[in-house]
Design a protein around this nucleic acid. Structure first.
Lengths: 135, 135
DNA sequence: TCTAAATTTGTAATCATTACAATTTTATAA
DNA sequence: TTATAAAATTGTAATGATTACAAATTTAGA
């Protein structure tokens, strides 16, 4: 993945901060929160400010190269994979993972009363790691 | 719907506030936010405090007679219908409506790497009312 | 190199939510 | 009925995430 090109072709000037934040998001499939992104990158970019993280994510979202994951009502997570997929969160360990899913299989009665443009699917339960643990 | 009985049978003492809040939630299928619930009920119960609304909703959620709808990352909505259904939000008018859906139709590859206990499906787009409006 | 525009940054403001202690209400037993 | 304890409600203050905003820095172009 050529991050600079990806940003440029989406009308985003590839500043150091933007490249690093996008790269981090893209490589980190656990869908980090703003705090995690900031904490993990401030070592790399010592001048980084949390405002920049917020600004940059907003910019990414406005340009459709990032989306939010609101699987939990008290934390917003971010995702740089724009291909259709769902998310699973283990309620024991808290990890969030991507889930391949066929959204077109979803049928609903009210098909004619609105036009769907985006679908978010959130699954919760227990991951195998946690299920196999003896408590 | 006998609200008092519904609360009682779910181990919740049916105080005036609890009855009114549940009744409001159950009748209001637009999934109000805490602010909306508070504003709409404080006329009825002049002593009502927003803390009580928060406390009561938390109690309902802990006892599985209410769930949260986090279709938007900056507002938490509440829902007293516990039967399986999805939610659609019109991005033009902001209304949220229930959608009948067959969750069991959802197939995913990773079926064996976790155990799903809850599924939330959020649809966004334009409702017919907004689509038919001439701007 | 100079200047203007864009980007980043830090601080202060805002807003939703939670913590907590005081008050009020409810239930129980004398 | 009255007294007492427990439960529920309330108001205020604290917290924490996000946004607003203005100053500082960086970048791009003349």
């Amino acid at each position: 993945m050529d991050f600079i090109n990806h940003l440029t072709s989406n009308n985003i000037k590839p500043s150091l901060q933007r490249i690093k934040i996008f790269e981090y998001l893209y490589d980190n499939r656990e869908h980090p929160t703003v705090d995690t992104i900031y904490s993990d990158l401030v070592g790399d970019i010592p001048t980084l400010s949390k405002t920049t993280v917020y600004n940059t994510l907003k910019l990414f979202i406005d340009n459709n190269i990032t989306s939010t994951v609101t699987i939990e009502d008290n934390e917003v997570r971010y995702d740089a994979i724009m291909e259709e997929h769902a998310h699973f969160k283990c309620e024991k360990c808290g990890n969030v993972q991507d889930v391949e899913i066929d959204v077109s299989a979803l049928k609903f009665k009210e098909k004619n009363s609105f036009k769907v443009e985006k679908t978010n699917i959130y699954l919760k339960g227990k991951c195998n790691k946690c299920l196999n643990k003896i408590n």
